[in-house]
C-alpha cells in the first residue's frame, strides 16, 4: 500500500465520494448518476464487469472505497464511448472509468497483473521512449511479460498474425534497432516529467 493511499484514507475518512470528486478525472460528475443502467447495458464488455459503471457510481456514494479501487471492472473499458452518448444525464462515464482506473493504479490498489493495466503501462512507456509508438517493441513486451519461455510460446501462437503483417509490409523487424521517433526527445521527456509533477501535486499523488 502506498503512502499516498494512507494519506488519502486519513484525509477523506468515510467520504469516498468527496475523494473521487477532488482527485479523479471528471469525478465531480459521479453524484449526477440517476441509476438508470443504460451505461451498463450499452457496454460491449458489459457481461465481464464485476461492477458495471452504474453500480460503481452507487458504490462510490456508499463509500465502498476498497471494493471500487481494487476492482478490475474499470479496466474492462474499451473506450467505445457508447455509455457517454447514451447517458440521459450526459455524464462523461468513459473518462470517469479511465480516471478511476488511473487513480487506483497510481495508489497501488489496482489488481496486480490485470492485463489491461499492464498493457496500458507498457503502451505509455513505449510511446514516451521516442515520442511515438514502436509497434514491434510493444507486441514483444506484451508477449514476453511473463518471461522468456512463455514469450516464445505466445509469439509462436501469434505467428500467423505476425507473418501476415510482415508480408503486407505493416510490420518491420528493423524497428527493434532503428525505430521511428521524434527528434526532440529531450524536450518531450522534460515536458512530460513536468506534467507528471504538476498532476501529482494537484492530485496529491506523490509516490
Amino acid at each position: 500500500m502506498s503512502e499516498a493511499n494512507t494519506q488519502a484514507v486519513e484525509k477523506y475518512r468515510n467520504n469516498f465520494l468527496k475523494e473521487v470528486e477532488e482527485r479523479v478525472e471528471e469525478g465531480e460528475w459521479v453524484k449526477m448518476c440517476m441509476q438508470c443502467g443504460v451505461c451498463s447495458g450499452s457496454c460491449p464488455f458489459g457481461p465481464h464487469w464485476a461492477h458495471p459503471p452504474q453500480e460503481i457510481f452507487m458504490m462510490i456514494r456508499a463509500g465502498k472505497r476498497d471494493e471500487v479501487l481494487t476492482s478490475d471492472s474499470m479496466w474492462m473499458c474499451t473506450s467505445c464511448y457508447n455509455c457517454i452518448v447514451r447517458c440521459p444525464r450526459k455524464l462523461p462515464i468513459t473518462h470517469i472509468m479511465h480516471g478511476l482506473a488511473n487513480y487506483a493504479h497510481r495508489l497501488g490498489l489496482a489488481p496486480k497483473g490485470q492485463p489491461t493495466r499492464e498493457f496500458g503501462k507498457m503502451f505509455w512507456n513505449n510511446l514516451v521512449a521516442t515520442g511515438r509508438v514502436n509497434e514491434l517493441k510493444l507486441s514483444l513486451s506484451l508477449y514476453f511479460k511473463d518471461g522468456f519461455s512463455q514469450g516464445i510460446k505466445n509469439a509462436m501462437a501469434m505467428k500467423d498474425v505476425g507473418l501476415g503483417m510482415l508480408k503486407a509490409k505493416r510490420l518491420n523487424p528493423f524497428e527493434l534497432f532503428s525505430p521511428h521517433g521524434c527528434k526532440d526527445r529531450k524536450g518531450i521527456h522534460a515536458m512530460l516529467k513536468k506534467a507528471r509533477e504538476i498532476e501529482d501535486r494537484r492530485k496529491h499523488l506523490t509516490s
Binding site: 482506473a101 488511473n102 510511446l127
Partner: peptide, 16 residues
C-alpha cells in the same frame, strides 16, 4: 508525437 491513444490513461493520467 503520439496522442496517448485510448489506453494511455492508465499510466499517463490526465495532464501528461
Amino acid at each position: 508525437n503520439c496522442c496517448g491513444a485510448s489506453i494511455g490513461y492508465a499510466e499517463g493520467g490526465e495532464l501528461p
